[in-house]
């Protein structure tokens, strides 16, 4: 990578391009407003139903579910922003236009991620305010430890998005269903709302191998007031980085196949 200089101007241009997309396609706001709202209402209400008349138990259940949904939306928003950002170029047949400019792959991803962070903060604000308003769950009670814990689902969302992009490059827009679908596989396996021990024994090793699982364990510990589980966080970070390396390698190979097999013809 000697001599490769990334352009901040190009990264900002890509981010602004995706801002216009959100501005002109209001239905995209569903991902950052409606779904977070629905998720908080759904899981907060489940907790209230399961423990009627037991205020303390109800608050505990709601806390587990709502802290879980908060961290889950970090995965969801970061993944959806990057994956659908790329898909927007495929849907509008803009890939060829982009590929004949000096724009580097890393600059493109950087630009989409940059604007994706804006969407992430919007989504998390909706989760936090709804949880506070309807269920008296204050996110700030989790403390500053939430920031390093949230870094794992954040990176994991990007890694999953890069995996989806790699599959779309190789198999075409037929693979785009994975942009949303893959999250529904990761959700139950990550122990978002329960410990891994609650899963069927056959699935436990798979769950343990996912970085998100360890981040959610650390998140529950924060809610319980047990402090930061540095061991769990360390495992989560290391496995997330390893997964990232594997996925970037896979993406590079798929991009190579895209160029070698002339798959650009699918988008012209």
């Amino acid at each position: 990578m000697t001599g490769v200089q990334l352009s901040w101007l190009r990264i900002k241009a890509v981010a602004r391009r995706h801002y216009y997309v959100l501005l002109r396609a209001p239905h995209r706001l569903f991902d950052v407003t409606i779904w977070p709202l629905v998720d908080v209402l759904l899981f907060g209400s489940i907790a209230a139903f399961v423990h009627p008349g037991h205020a303390a138990a109800g608050r505990l259940a709601a806390g587990y579910l709502l802290s879980g949904i908060l961290l889950w939306h970090v995965v969801y928003q970061s993944q959806i922003a990057l994956a659908t950002g790329f898909l927007e170029e495929a849907w509008t047949r803009n890939l060829l236009n982009l590929m004949v400019t000096p724009l580097r792959e890393m600059e493109y991803v950087g630009g989409v991620v940059l604007f994706g962070m804006v969407k992430l903060f919007l989504g998390l604000a909706v989760v936090s305010l709804t949880a506070l308003g309807f269920f008296a769950f204050n996110v700030t009670d989790l403390g500053i430890g939430l920031i390093p814990v949230a870094a794992v689902p954040l990176e994991n969302g990007w890694v999953i998005a890069l995996f989806v992009i790699a599959l779309v490059l190789r198999f075409g827009t037929g693979a785009e269903a994975l942009a949303w679908g893959i999250l529904f596989v990761v959700l139950p396996l990550s122990g978002v709302f329960y410990p891994v021990a609650a899963l069927p024994w056959l699935l436990r090793p798979v769950a343990e191998a996912l970085p998100t699982t360890h981040a959610f364990v650390a998140g529950r510990a924060l809610f319980d007031g047990r402090g930061m589980l540095w061991g769990e966080l360390g495992v989560a970070l290391v496995s997330c980085v390893l997964l990232g390396v594997v996925v970037v390698f896979f993406l590079t190979r798929m991009l190579q196949a895209f160029r070698t097999r002339g798959y650009i013809s699918r988008y012209t």
Partner: peptide, 16 residues
């Protein structure tokens, strides 16, 4: 989803 001037500014910036 882009207006013509937004589109051209975007590509102009990609070219520096």
């Amino acid at each position: 989803r882009l207006k013509v001037d937004e589109y051209l500014r975007f590509y102009g910036q990609l070219y520096g």
